[in-house]
Design a protein around this nucleic acid. Structure first.
Lengths: 344, 344
DNA sequence: ATATTTTATGCAATCGGTTGCATGTTTTTG
DNA sequence: CAAAAACATGCAACCGATTGCATAAAATAT
């Protein structure tokens, strides 16, 4: 099973007695080639079974029509929706999408950055790993004028492009909602505090408490390593065992919020009457758990589309790294039964 | 912000007074270059900030170290886990992964195949769109000796590589389980019958009924278009309105199974006593719904890893398309409360 | 009819590695 | 010590498309 030789523009040129340049230009609808010639060349190309070699074009242009994506893990609802949005938009614009998972390890992120760089991607979309604290490994892209858009988990740097949600406002909203439902001892499941998203959510939580004159009790703020289901159960147990257990929980993700609901129910704690719970993300499980989990919704797919759009825009123009562009997408408070004490 | 010129092997060659060939070989640990030279060259390369240009290498080799993936949609638990497995394995082996979504449209699949082909991928992993009925658009890969591995939703052709689960056995197991729990009127939520996975699951269902001398009632077999939550609710309503409603449901996915549970509960139908339900896939929602959804588990991540492994193996050897290789992975019956009448 | 534009096409260098073959050098062997 | 073998490196063609510059041909203006 030998691979037949591929047809190249040279083969077409020979057959049609044109030069390779003309073939190349014709196939790219270059204006300096007459319509008639273009038509004829395209027809012949098709007949001969010509498949353009993107590698050659990319090499020549020193840029492949490809976007790189760096994320922690693909198989999470938010991330996979984000990627779906990116891929869809990129493909429509004729770009391929390469994905790379860091598994939340800084080390992997560095290696992946290297590989993507070597592939001469035209743009990079990054959501940082949990561990990442510095972004030197991405400097090479900026140096080469390869646009980077950070999304969701972004660095604190200023002169960069970001697509994010207002985590602070969302955290505030969620907490405020619990307060309005009559909660006065509100716990918070917090993520790693060097990651903007978790830090901001917590800030929003704290400021809401302060604004409503509710004392901030550090015993009620649980620092999570990975916001996993197991961690959530453990934390809930600990909280409910407290002499003064909380009457509300604002969790930085849905997974741990759901684990809290399930654990509380198991102990006979009534939700939302004795414990109101609100999560973050609106994962599929949020609508399935009973009572339904109130949560903060992300426009994940749209975020992806915007990332792709931004990056392509920058990739085309000779972008200006001096100006940063921050897109903040709206979140919504989605009230289900896990926090609805007043029957709204 | 101008892009600095990239360092090439020619620059290194000039600096070290070696020929580019030697540099190239040294960087690739070619045996004909002395250890000492290799060490010196690599050191200098690093110092100079050399970044290999994979495009150039790929062009020369007429193959980029990249795997293509064609799937319906990324943001589904099974698919994203599958991709995660592929990506992980591929990356370890030094391959990039390009993904393309068909959104279950044949037309998109054809276009995507073209784009991937033009990128000169080294191998292709495909799970067919819901619509796809012929695979001519993939012939070009085979003609060029580019290995293809089909996964999960595979064509019926014989001489191809497949990584699948035994859908028939799983369907049989699931149905048998319901029968053993005392169900005698078992409904089936079936997917599109030209897709192997759904056809096989249904076959297993029917054969199990037959083996246990239970009549096959066509009114209890619902043909779904997309196995969505809404479709599931509608179907459940219809079934429960029947003069002789079912006492068990085997659904070809978890989404519709969960929708059945929720709808049945709303109507006061007791699960599993009056209606036992079993799904397929073990999506996260399966463990959250109450009662917990019994289901068939897929080793999704592992399937991905095996796909990557197979494809890389074929990409390296000059593969032999004459022989097909079919890997069938085990599924497991995971019994939760939605079907557990006897309290096992 | 000649000069000037406009239009259509070709030439040849280039992008950055890779590799078969040739050559020069060193080591081993008889 | 010469011949053979092993080792180390270089030459130059090649992968396939792109593009600035040059040029030929056709159309328009004078």
């Amino acid at each position: 099973m030998k691979a037949k030789k591929e047809i190249t523009i040279y083969d077409i040129a020979k057959k049609l007695k044109y030069s390779p340049s003309t073939i190349s230009r014709a196939l790219n609808d270059h204006t300096s080639i007459s319509k008639k010639t273009i038509r004829a060349i395209k027809k012949t190309a098709k007949e001969m079974g010509y498949h353009p070699n993107s590698l050659a074009a990319s090499l020549r242009n020193n840029r492949s029509k490809t976007l790189g994506i760096m994320i922690s893990r693909i198989n999470r609802p938010f991330i996979s929706s984000l990627i779906s949005g990116i891929e869809e938009h990129a493909r429509k614009s004729g770009y391929n999408v390469i994905i790379s998972q860091s598994n939340d390890k800084y080390e992997n992120e560095v290696v992946n950055a290297q590989t993507l760089y070597n592939s001469r991607i035209s743009g990079l979309i990054v959501s940082l790993s949990m561990e990442t604290r510095k972004v030197d490994h991405l400097k090479q892209f900026m140096d080469q004028g390869i646009p980077i858009v950070f999304v969701d988990r972004v660095p604190d740097e200023l002169n960069i492009h970001k697509v994010i949600i207002d985590n602070y406002a969302a955290g505030y909203k969620a907490t405020q909602h619990l307060i309005e439902q009559g909660c006065s001892r509100i716990a918070h499941f917090a993520g790693a505090q060097h990651r903007n998203v978790y830090r901001e959510r917590k800030k929003g939580y704290i400021d809401a408490l302060k604004d409503y004159n509710i004392p901030v009790d550090n015993d009620l703020i649980i620092r999570f390593k990975s916001l996993s289901f197991e961690e959530g159960e453990k934390a809930t147990r600990k909280l409910l065992d407290l002499p003064g257990p909380p009457d509300g929980i604002f969790s930085a993700n849905d997974t741990t919020a759901v684990s809290a609901i399930l654990h509380a129910k198991k102990r006979g704690v009534k939700i939302p009457e004795e414990l109101a719970v609100i999560g973050f993300n609106d994962d599929p499980i949020a609508s399935i758990v009973e009572p339904g989990l109130s949560t903060i919704t992300h426009p994940a797919i749209k975020m992806g589309q915007i990332c792709a759009q931004r990056i392509l825009q920058h990739a085309r123009e000779d972008q200006d790294h001096a100006v940063s562009e921050i897109t903040v997408l709206p979140t919504e408070l989605l009230i289900r039964d896990s926090s609805n004490r007043k029957g709204i």
